[in-house]
Design a protein around this nucleic acid. Structure first.
Length: 313
DNA sequence: GGCCAGGTTCGCT
DNA sequence: AGCGAACATGGC
């Protein structure tokens, strides 16, 4: 094994602990990523080679600095540059939070959140494909169940590398998912319907019929239009990908049940907001709605906000 | 045990 | 257009 070290300077304020914890759903490990004892780990996939990135903070929220340790079978300058680019993207180090924090600080609903979650950046997925498959797996089911199914999928079909006696996995490649087929996906407890969606998308990518990774150059509307034309992808998934996969600042999955419930609760209305109400209400937060969404979900996941459904009579 | 969960499609009016 | 069922699984 070869090793290398480099540092990253995120745009301040950057709270590494909050960002890494959010990325792993405050669970220690989530999917292909882990965050334990202050170290965030992710096996990066360059297509033909794998390398493990281990990231820790060696700075502060206002003077952030990250140390990244790379471990791989073979390492050259190209691989190292690729690893730097990927891990920077995944941890959202280049995002500028200042305009969002300024806007949110003046908003009575958001002000308490940005105080409690100051410096949280939006983690992003290594690829559009990864975000898409993870989102489809999570459609309609609770985040608890989604966590189980995502982990099963990754552990079953993700490429792996062993470092110091520990096995790390990256997200499965489209080719591998296409090859295991419907049966292979059913085996990791996906419904037949979702198995079809995921297999079809993976096969289309493998044959070159579908290209996802070029969407970085499309504007938001075109991204949504292209995504919803894919079977299995509706508005929720498309808007979620603007945030998770493409790092856009103004995505807002207004059909999201938890989001509508939380907004209803924060606005002290009787029940959950309707999706249309949520969308209209959200316009005041444009063009920072991705951050609003991230902070709301961070508050839910870390239990700053209770998501308990309506209390029983 | 039943009901619901960070949706979407499909088949009905 | 709009509405309801089906979908698989785990937690409460």
């Amino acid at each position: 094994m070869n090793e290398a070290v480099f540092t990253l300077q995120p745009a301040p304020p950057y709270d590494f602990d909050r960002t890494a914890a959010y990325a792993t759903y405050y669970r220690g490990t989530y999917g292909a990523e882990s965050y334990t004892d202050g170290v965030f780990r992710r096996l990066l996939d360059a297509g033909d080679s794998l390398c493990l990135a281990s990231v820790r903070s060696v700075g502060t929220v206002d003077r952030p600095l990250l140390q990244v340790d790379i471990t791989a079978a073979t390492l050259d300058d190209t691989a190292l540059a690729g690893a730097r680019r990927q891990i920077s993207w995944i941890l959202g180090v280049e995002q500028d939070l200042l305009p969002f924090h300024a806007m949110a600080g003046e908003d009575p609903t958001l002000a308490p959140l940005v105080t409690r979650l100051h410096g949280l950046h939006m983690p992003q997925t290594a690829s559009v494909y990864e975000a898409l498959i993870l989102a489809i797996v999570g459609q309609q089911i609770s985040s608890q169940v989604a966590a189980t199914l995502r982990t099963l999928l990754i552990n079953a079909y993700g490429p792996s590398m062993e470092v110091a006696g520990q096995v790390y996995r990256s997200f499965p490649r489209a080719k591998a998912i296409s090859a295991v087929g419907i049966d292979g996906l059913r085996a990791v407890k996906l419904s037949n319907r979702k198995a079809e969606y995921i297999r079809d998308i993976s096969t289309a990518i493998t044959t070159g019929e579908l290209e996802l990774e070029d969407m970085h150059s499309c504007d938001d509307e075109e991204v949504v239009r292209r995504l919803v034309s894919i079977r299995g992808v509706g508005p929720w998934t498309a808007h979620w990908l603007l945030i998770r996969a493409l790092g856009r600042s103004d995505g807002f999955p207004h059909g999201d049940l938890a989001l509508c419930r939380t907004l209803g609760q924060l606005m002290q209305s009787a029940g959950p907001m309707k999706p249309q109400e949520a969308l209209e209400h959200s316009r005041r937060w444009s063009p920072y709605r991705s951050y609003v969404t991230t902070y709301l979900f961070a508050a839910i996941r870390s239990r700053l906000i209770s998501t308990a459904a309506k209390s029983r009579p």
